[in-house]
Write a protein that binds this DNA or RNA. Structure first.
Lengths: 336, 336
DNA sequence: GTCCATTTTGCACACGTGTGCAACAGTTTT
DNA sequence: AAAACTGTTGCACACGTGTGCAAAATGGAC
């Protein structure tokens, strides 16, 4: 009847209440910050709880509150090391703030929209989206259920959806200025066909800055957003070696493909014959073979910023959409 | 009174039951495979459900079943591209099988043990661990709650814990054979101080295979498991260039550091002056600068194997611990 | 000691679902 | 036609928690 249950799962607030000699409500209140309960009662509850190994059941709590501690992360792919370290940092920061990160990669037949509505079923505390902007109907549904959405590196202005991104304009301008200062007066910028907001913004800022200084810029279209795209663009770039051009790749993963192929396949000296600057400052850019100048977006700031936007909107759901901009920094290495 | 609720959240099985003219139990049964319900009733329920936009509330279901669709993934760090792609594949495969992946990275004060007991609170369907083996008490607790655990690339034999790993013995032997076939009769293997099971197994198999063929092997200790460790080992390796040695790195991320530094800093020709073989076949190993021979562990097989072990143990919790071995494959490139 | 303001407590309901059990309908066997 | 059997259905309970509300307790002022 009054048998002591084994510590761990199976211990309910009722068991704790009985041992502590209080009502079950008191137990619930003891574990609820700012609840109406006396210091004395709370202490008795904590004592009994640790004695039994009691832990609040988050599922039951979620059913009651209609809200979980879960936060969804929707990501396209993780083959880009920048995304991987971003997710790594975000996951850690979320846990430190008491959230539980879920990871979803978009897949065959499972786009951002499907994954988002799947997350809605779980009454998540929020969703961080680094893939595509979801359709507006879903956003409205999220707003109605007061589920915060944070868009990373996307510019789509949606009702009640917060955005965060690096300062792509500043980054693009720094790239142009750095190349021009290095004496490159013919510029080239690689533009992936599948370019998203952050990429095009960098390119536009780069071109604008070059225009201001009357430096000609070629925009060279490449395939997708990966190493192979940069590598395959090398032949076209190699033709211009005599011009001592300065090349800007709006993403390190592309830049490394280009740099690698230019040196290995075409034997081009960098920065001797041309200069190159990338973006993201992924670890590989610091490797010996590359030693590539790049523009760094600190992943820790991303994580902090994202969680900040989430918690603020949870505290005050009616605030108008915010757009946070993170500072970027030039990392000088050996390709300029 | 009978007002139709807005589609989406807030629609309960009760609403569906009323519209379909059946009991609430029927709705529950309609969404439960192999439940006792007539074709006719199920159809009526589905019709009403789609009309209202009803979706089963997974939180309420979880509270009742004492089991979630969540599966925890505990990982050390994601800076190794192999781990990143492993998690990427695993996340996709889990979702395809109806699970919801949660991602936890071990952190300051949050080791495998803490994260695991945190996951227990959520009544997860299972946990995939790629960090450390958890203490046996936690494993017992998981067994008691019938929560399947899968250990990836770890050898710790624990009660009711399944394990999966690549065939590290085969991989290590292939490495040795390949180097010896290439005419290298002095071998070196890099051994990280922080080596875990999978790494040491590869090394042991490599050494054993060399011994069988009477080929001498030097074991060279390096620091941690990353690019910098390999890079810093280059000086020591460079001293032996006259021996035309064959080097095995039990992890590509280390191998690339070594390869990169050997070529760039010490100007050593590979495979001219020495041969090198890595492990994991991460994308960077196929890059131009590296063109590194490596041993591939297919991440897709890992994901499928893990989910297979999970589902089988969910179906039959009493099966003895299994140990699944995945085939590995030599990827011939230009460093041997 | 009385009265009022404030804090603390416990009851009871709600959150949305799965399922054992008994009742029931429909079909086959004797 | 009665009996036995198979397949469906609805009732009612359980899962473990948070919280509004009224009652009780506490503390202070007179």
């Amino acid at each position: 009847m009054t048998s002591v249950k084994r510590p761990g799962s199976g211990v309910t607030s009722f068991d704790v209440a009985r041992l502590a000699g209080v009502s079950r409500s008191a137990v619930s209140r003891a574990f609820t910050p700012r609840a109406s309960i006396s210091k004395d009662a709370r202490l008795k509850v904590f004592d009994a709880a640790s004695q039994l190994g009691y832990r609040v059941n988050p599922v039951a709590r979620a059913l009651n509150q209609r809200r979980t501690d879960l936060v969804g992360m929707i990501v396209a792919r993780m083959d880009n090391p920048f995304r991987a370290s971003q997710i790594d940092a975000l996951s850690r920061t979320l846990v430190r703030h008491g959230f539980r990160p879920m990871l979803f990669c978009i897949d065959e037949g499972l786009g951002t929209e499907q994954l988002l509505s799947l997350l809605l079923d779980y009454s998540v505390s929020g969703v961080v989206i680094t893939s595509d902007a979801p359709p507006i109907e879903i956003c409205n549904e999220c707003a109605r259920q007061q589920i915060p959405l944070v868009l990373v590196d996307r510019d789509d202005r949606l009702p009640f959806v917060d955005r965060i991104s690096g300062d792509n304009v500043k980054g693009g301008r720094i790239a142009a200025e750095t190349l021009i200062e290095a004496g490159r007066h013919k510029l080239v910028v690689l533009s992936p066909e599948t370019a998203v907001y952050s990429i095009t913004t960098r390119i536009d800022a780069f071109v604008a800055c070059a225009d201001e200084q009357d430096v000609p810029v070629d925009v060279l279209n490449v395939g997708t957003h990966n190493y192979e795209a940069g590598r395959d663009a090398a032949a076209s770039i190699a033709e211009r070696r005599h011009d001592e051009i300065g090349v800007f790749c709006p993403s390190d993963i592309i830049a490394l493909g280009l740099l690698d192929a230019l040196r290995v396949k075409h034997g081009i000296k960098i920065p001797g014959e041309m200069s190159l600057i990338g973006y993201d400052d992924i670890p590989q850019s610091g490797w010996e073979f590359a030693d590539m100048t790049s523009i760094s977006q600190p992943v820790a700031s991303f994580a902090d910023g994202i969680v900040g936007l989430l918690t603020e909107r949870i505290a005050n759901p009616q605030t108008p959409p915010r757009n946070e901009l993170l500072d970027v920094m030039l990392i000088r290495r050996g390709t300029v």
